[in-house]
Amino acid sequence: MKVSLDGLGLRYGDVVAVQNLSLTVEDGQSVVLLGQSGCGKTSTMRCIAGLEVPSEGRISLGEHVVYDSASGANVAAHKRRIGMVFQSYAVWPHMTVLQNVTYPLVVKRTRKATARARALEVLEMVGLAHLADRGASNLSGGQMQRVALARSIAMQPSVLLLDEPLSNLDARLRDDLRVELRRIQQETGLTSVYVTHDQNEALALADRIAVMQGGRITQLAPPAELYDRPASASIAKFLGVTNAFPIGGPAGRGSVVVEGSQCVVTVAEEVAPDDTTVCFRPEAVEVRPAGDTTEGPNTWTGTVRVAVFQGNSVRYSVDLHDGPVVDAVCEVRRGPVQPLGAQVVVRVSPDRVRTLPEETSSTTPATAPDAVLVTS
Rank of each mutant, 00 (worst) to 15 (best):
R334M: 09
T293R: 10
G311W: 09
P324D: 07
E295Y: 10
D292W: 03
E359R: 15
G341C: 01
V287L: 06
G323Y: 06
G302D: 09
A272E: 14
V326A: 05
W300V: 01
L340S: 04
P297G: 00
V278R: 01
T360E: 15
G260W: 03
V344Q: 09
V278P: 03
L340P: 07
V267I: 07
V264K: 02
E270A: 14
Q343K: 12
T294M: 14
V264W: 07
V344K: 04
L320G: 00
V265F: 00
G341S: 03
S349K: 12
C263S: 05
T294A: 09
Y316S: 01
G291V: 03
S349H: 15
C279K: 03
V345S: 03
V258F: 10
R352T: 03
V345P: 06
S361N: 15
S362K: 11
D322C: 01
V329D: 09
E358Q: 15
A290Y: 15
S261N: 04
Q338I: 05
G291K: 02
C263Y: 03
R354S: 12
V337L: 06
G311E: 10
E359M: 13
G323N: 06
C279Y: 08
R354E: 09
Q310S: 11
D292A: 13
V271T: 05
E286W: 12
A284Q: 08
P339R: 02
V353A: 03
Y316Q: 03
V278M: 03
T303K: 07
Q262R: 12
W300A: 00
R288Q: 04
V346M: 06
R354M: 14
T367S: 13
V318W: 07
A272G: 07
E286L: 12
A368L: 08
S317H: 13
T355V: 09
G341I: 04
V337W: 00
V314E: 01
F280K: 00
T367N: 14
G296Y: 14
R281E: 10
T364W: 11
A307W: 03
E358I: 08
V285Y: 04
E359A: 14
Q343F: 06
P339D: 14
A290W: 14
R354G: 06
Q262T: 09
L340E: 12
T293V: 14
S313T: 06
T360W: 15
Q310F: 11
A368D: 15
